[in-house]
């Protein structure tokens, strides 16, 4: 499954990095502690978080995530958008809670 389908199914808003929406999603990881995400997320994962500051971009680049989903309608900081655009990391936002977001993505990936 690629990010385009996730955007469609979960009605995500695409803040930036739209060119990368054809990326395959290998799975997902949810976390707000950057060290936890560094240690436990995997390449190609979609990262679900409520952190909206610019440091999430470097973590995502290093882990080669498919993209980042901010939950609860969190608006990413301007610096975050700038960095994510430059690095080509898709930044997506949902109004759903983390629990609901993860649940829906899990069901889509494991029908």
């Amino acid at each position: 499954m690629n990010l385009t389908l996730l955007v469609e199914k979960l009605n995500l808003s695409v803040v930036c990095g739209g060119d990368g929406l054809d990326r395959e999603v290998s799975g997902g990881y949810m976390g707000d502690l950057l060290s936890d995400v560094m240690a436990n997320s995997r390449e190609g994962n979609v990262w679900i978080t409520c952190q909206s500051h610019q440091n999430i971009v470097a973590v995502s680049v290093l882990k080669e995530h498919a993209g980042i989903i901010l939950v609860l309608g969190k608006k990413p900081d301007d610096d975050t958008i700038k960095k994510a655009s430059r690095e080509g990391i898709p930044l997506l936002v949902t109004e759903l809670s983390g629990f609901e977001t993860v649940g829906r993505i899990y069901n889509l990936l494991h029908p």
Partner: peptide
């Protein structure tokens, strides 16, 4: 507040 300082850094490095 930025999501750092969870006390996992050195532990992660060791791992």
């Amino acid at each position: 507040k930025m999501g750092f300082g969870a006390g996992m850094g050195l532990f992660n490095i060791k791992n």
